[in-house]
């Protein structure tokens, strides 16, 4: 028997299949490396392509509030503020609501109600953002956001955040509230899964000590699942920071720096999406938009790292075998 014929024996064929492991390992490694490379490539490109404005205006783009592309004035402060403001307000609205939904679905509702309602909540995530925008402008803003704004102005109007006139249709509050609706399914679905993953024994331990449901949820379940809930918040915040379409449609695209939630404003993603067509003719304009993209990228990166750190710090307190 020569070596050449041995190559085609069934045994050898099996061996080769096993050596497919090497190929498979290489494939998965490549796929994983691609993720890293893509992130690096995006960061690098954003950095290079924004060279013009970075050199011409230095930090002015971040700290100046004057946005007038035809006069080559590129101050993105109103948009940076708008992005952070709408995202954080959205989170502030969506977190208690989402947590409430999660607790109801996981702890209180019967299996049938939990399944049905859970499905509906997840369906909210499937609605295209342009539909949210359209509904926001014509239905949600006039019927719900405007009265809310008027209410806030009447009672806490002395705060800069709720000062100024109440815009009937377009406002940062409308954008925040639409964003809250859009991140609600993420926060509630992930938190619900977190609650459902908490061992029964933890609940029973508290209940057997005469704790009420409320005490069990607040003192035992939420601390236990905190790292998972923080994870849900990160996912929600990530979506809110980057959301473009619905925000552009309801925020009113006002380029002035105004503190108030009740007036129209803009966000970085809304400006980039709204103006990249006009920017094609001007190097400075295009560079300014790309630099804004870079800022958005960096903010998201920092927030994610910060949130990871929080998750890690919380998770460290719970041994691995009990981690949700």
């Amino acid at each position: 028997m020569t070596l050449a014929t041995r190559t085609f024996s069934p045994k050898e064929f099996k061996r080769r299949l096993r050596h497919g492991d090497v190929i498979f390992d290489a494939l998965t490694l490549t796929a994983a490396a691609l993720v890293l490379l893509t992130v690096l490539a995006i960061g690098l490109q954003l950095w290079q392509q924004s060279q013009f404005t970075r050199e011409a205006f230095a930090w002015n783009l971040v700290f100046s509030a004057d946005w007038n592309p035809s006069a080559e004035k590129f101050g993105a402060l109103p948009f940076i503020y708008g992005t952070l403001q709408t995202s954080l307000v959205a989170l502030l609205i969506a977190l208690p609501l989402g947590l409430g939904i999660a607790i109801f679905l996981a702890e209180l509702a019967s299996a049938w109600v939990s399944r049905t309602l859970g499905f509906l909540v997840e369906l909210l995530a499937a609605v295209p953002s342009v539909v949210y925008g359209l509904w926001g402008v014509y239905v949600f803003a006039p019927t719900f956001v405007k009265p809310t704004g008027e209410f806030l102005q009447t009672f806490v109007g002395f705060l800069p955040l709720f000062s100024g006139s109440v815009s009937p249709q377009y406002s940062r509050l409308a954008a925040s509230m639409i964003l809250a609706l859009m991140i609600l399914p993420t926060i509630s679905a992930v938190s619900r899964d977190v609650f459902q993953a908490i061992p029964r024994a933890q609940r029973e331990a508290a209940l057997a000590l005469g704790a009420t449901r409320w005490e069990t949820i607040w003192q035992v379940l939420i601390p236990y699942g905190l790292s998972g809930i923080l994870g849900a918040v990160i996912l929600g915040l990530g979506r809110a920071l980057g959301e473009t379409m619905a925000v552009t449609m309801v925020i009113g695209n006002n380029y002035n720096l105004v503190a108030s939630l009740l007036e129209p404003g803009s966000t970085m993603s809304a400006v980039i999406a709204g103006q990249f067509g006009e920017a094609a003719s001007s190097d400075a304009f295009r560079s300014a938009l790309i630099e804004m993209g870079l800022i958005l990228f960096v903010i998201t990166l920092i927030l994610n790292m910060f949130a990871r750190l929080l998750v890690w710090r919380v998770a460290r307190r719970v041994p691995t075998e009990l981690r949700v």
Binding site: P199, A201, Q202, E204, A205, A206, L207, A208, L209, G210, V220, P223, Y224, R317, V318, P319, L322
Partner: peptide, 16 residues
């Protein structure tokens, strides 16, 4: 449940 306490099959201390 305050008057009738319970100890379970597997130890279930709180992560506290």
């Amino acid at each position: 449940r305050r008057r009738v306490g319970m100890v379970f099959q597997r130890p279930n201390p709180f992560p506290k």
